[in-house]
Write a protein that binds this DNA or RNA. Structure first.
Lengths: 239, 239
DNA sequence: CGAATAGTGTCTGTAAGACACTATGTT
DNA sequence: AACATAGTGTCTTACAGACACTATTCG
């Protein structure tokens, strides 16, 4: 007799060698017209003292998916949940970690700077780094490659959606969204095109309030609750 | 003294519990105007007798990435390398496999039916199933969910690239590409639009040969060697 | 020649790019 | 009032949709 129940009774996972599994996230924000990434100084070996992405091991007792692991680690470092969190890619191989064959499930996240600044300012090991300054940091493992992939994803999605709103505070103006989009894409865009898309997306509602960012007051908007992101069928900046 | 070398000397991966890690692929092809997926009958527990995606454990001695694992498993089942292979997503959680907390890195692949039919016909455990017939099969684990994600990816990419060419033989006609695209999208498309994109992509060259699929002979084309896939800035079928 | 599929010409429709214009608030 | 930023009107451009047209091959 050899039922599945018999098999499972005798099954011992520790008999099989397994890769080292981690979860890492690339969290972006915008601050002072710069696109920034959250990096953490490594307190332990391996690569102690290097800077790395926020992440770590899965806690199988608490996490019911790698999304939960990513969320838990980001919340530990920032004090809040990211506004946007999607899976990026899985990186693996025998040489990327000195402890052996390893695999990291990576996530791509966005948050408003103001939402987490108080918490980040209070912990010394996490820091926002403008992407133009990343070269000043010694990054652990293949984290530079992961960041490059995340940046590519962010720029692609910015071309066919209004993803940058997830880098903004709960209420925001057209001007702030335009600035966010321009910082991410690294070039100026047509305000008219952005506003046309903003309206067509059906994702937003006016708060009724307005705010003076420049000289004239600008209307404030928020994301409609429960409304999903809208994907456009054409890209911005199609050159 | 506590150097990284000391740390690595004392490091014992087996002390830490680790999720069960697998790699699974969704391989699509086109046959007789139907979009098909390769499924394999499970010879061992768990879920023995159910059908599942081609995949399995990482062989850390031989595979230098999960891509290599996916490629190795697909080659075992089909006899050839897929024409297209990209990472899809990672699925994880405590309940998806009865052996415990598990994680599968999934890949999305395309191949021409004729390239692997001789090999598949010779092995009894692998089978092409038209997606409309998947309901007739008892699928293992969360493989239905993985297939749904792969199908979504295939359809999306078909809207903004000529990805379906990777389901065709090395040389093919405009008509075959149109048929492939229509089968994948489940609706007819404008031949003129397809040919405009085909030319604009710069991905193809004429073989000089032609072929009678219908009454009149059609020109044969192939992918230019070393040329990457072209992504269009607008979608087809934007309704 | 007619039938069927291969392939082209060209008009329409839609949404982005460009940019001038008007509106509103601050000094 | 001057000015700077908010927001609109509208022309142009690029490319997909529609569909009629011509071309080729076979019976």
């Amino acid at each position: 007799m050899n039922t599945e129940a018999d098999y499972l009774n005798q099954y011992d996972a520790s008999r099989f060698p397994s890769p080292l599994v981690t979860v890492d996230s690339v969290l972006f924000t915008l601050h002072q017209q710069a696109l920034c990434i959250l990096v953490v100084e490594r307190a332990n070996h391996p690569q102690k003292g290097y800077w790395g992405l926020p992440g770590g091991f899965i806690d199988m007792a608490r996490d019911d998916s790698t999304r939960a692991t990513a969320m838990r680690k980001l919340t530990e470092k920032t004090g809040v949940s990211p506004s946007w969190l999607e899976q990026l890619d899985t990186f693996s191989g025998p040489d990327r970690d000195p402890r052996g064959w390893s695999l990291t499930v990576t996530w791509f996240a966005l948050i408003a700077w103001a939402d987490c600044e108080p918490h980040i300012a209070s912990v010394s090991d996490a820091r926002w780094v403008p992407i133009a300054r990343l070269a000043d940091y010694s990054l652990a493992f293949d984290h530079q490659k992961i960041i490059t992939a995340a940046l590519h994803r962010l720029r692609q999605k910015t071309m066919y959606s209004l993803l940058p709103v997830y880098c903004l505070p709960e209420t925001f103006t057209h001007g702030q969204l335009q600035e966010a989009t321009e910082v991410i894409l690294g070039q100026s865009i047509q305000r008219k095109s952005l506003i046309r898309r903003f309206e067509a997306s059906g994702m937003f509602e006016e708060t009724g309030e307005s705010m003076a960012t420049g000289t004239r007051k600008a209307r404030l908007w928020r994301r409609k609750p429960g409304v999903d992101i809208h994907l456009f069928s054409r890209n911005l900046l199609t050159d």
